[in-house]
């Protein structure tokens, strides 16, 4: 297709390389300032040097800790655990939200319970989980899955219930059967909300992963690094854990946004969400 008007809107204008670099510089002002302040604060002893490590010390500790690729191993462990819990919880959440959104009967039956359970902080489940699943990997993964379950279920439910009546009526006018209605109208209409749920689930499972590793000591892992650093009063190790935690969370968030933009690229009105 060669249509100037269409092409203009199909291919969004990309900024020049110069503009890209400027944007990138702008974004790094604050992190760079914090790093600089940290370096100065430790260099001139504005903070207690017995507790606070300098950026250089953290960097040295990172190299030391990673001599045998330990950091990669720990990161891999955590990500794998996160992925397992995320897949389990998001799948269950999508299914539960789908059923509750689809059937008014299921909604009346299940929605109050879901809203009650949602109000319970997930860390409150740890004692119960360890009683049922022990203190091994199963407990941790179920805990992480719980973190993914609620946002996935609630956003799916909300997305399906807020499909405009006019679109459902359109489905009726063209005599779509329930399956066609789901595939052609309800799911695409609910997609932005479902994606938001998945995105939130992705962020929360990462926090839950590190949290559960910290509370249920999990060997080499990001949470394990935090725990070790804290227990041995090696703050530089704690910093390594924090930086890993933040970087992965940031990357997951960016990735989820990029995926969302890609899936919703034909809907300019929902892109900003």
């Amino acid at each position: 297709m060669t249509f100037p008007m269409l092409q203009k809107s199909l291919h969004k204008r990309r900024g020049s390389a110069g503009a890209e670099i400027r944007r990138w510089l702008w974004k790094s002002i604050l992190p760079a300032s914090i790093l600089a302040f940290w370096a100065l604060a430790t260099r001139f002893h504005w903070v207690d040097r017995k507790i606070w490590a300098s950026p250089a010390q953290v960097w040295q500790a990172t190299l030391g800790l990673n001599r045998d690729g330990f950091l990669w191993l720990a990161l891999g462990e955590s990500l794998l655990r996160d992925l397992a819990g995320f897949l389990l919880g998001a799948a269950a959440g999508l299914a539960a939200g789908g059923v509750l959104g689809w059937s008014p009967w299921a909604y009346r039956l299940g929605a109050p319970t879901l809203h009650f359970l949602k109000a319970i902080a997930i860390f409150a489940w740890i004692p119960l989980l360890t009683m049922v699943f022990g203190i091994g990997e199963a407990s941790k993964i179920v805990f992480i899955a719980l973190a993914a379950f609620y946002p996935a279920a609630l956003n799916t439910l909300e997305g399906i219930r807020s499909v405009p009546k006019s679109q459902l009526e359109l489905a009726r006018a063209y005599r779509l059967d329930p399956w066609q209605r789901l595939r052609k109208v309800i799911l695409p209409s609910a997609l932005p909300s479902i994606l938001t749920g998945v995105q939130v689930a992705l962020i929360l499972t990462w926090l839950a992963t590190v949290g559960v590793e910290y509370f249920m000591s999990a060997g080499p892992s990001v949470g394990g690094i935090l725990l070790n650093g804290a227990e041995s009063f090696h703050l530089e190790i704690v910093f390594i854990g924090i930086i890993l935690l933040g970087s992965v969370g940031f990357a997951l968030n960016q990735g989820a946004h990029a995926l969302g933009r890609r899936l919703l690229r034909h809907r300019p009105q929902t892109l900003k969400a």
């Binding site: 679109q167 359109l170 063209y174 059967d177 066609q180 052609k184 695409p188 209409s189 997609l191 009105q269």
Partner: peptide, 20 residues
Amino acid sequence: DLRLLPWLTAEANIALALEN
């Protein structure tokens, strides 16, 4: 209010009426 589905092309919007 027209009710074109925003996630479908013009073609696919018309084809929706032909599903059955």
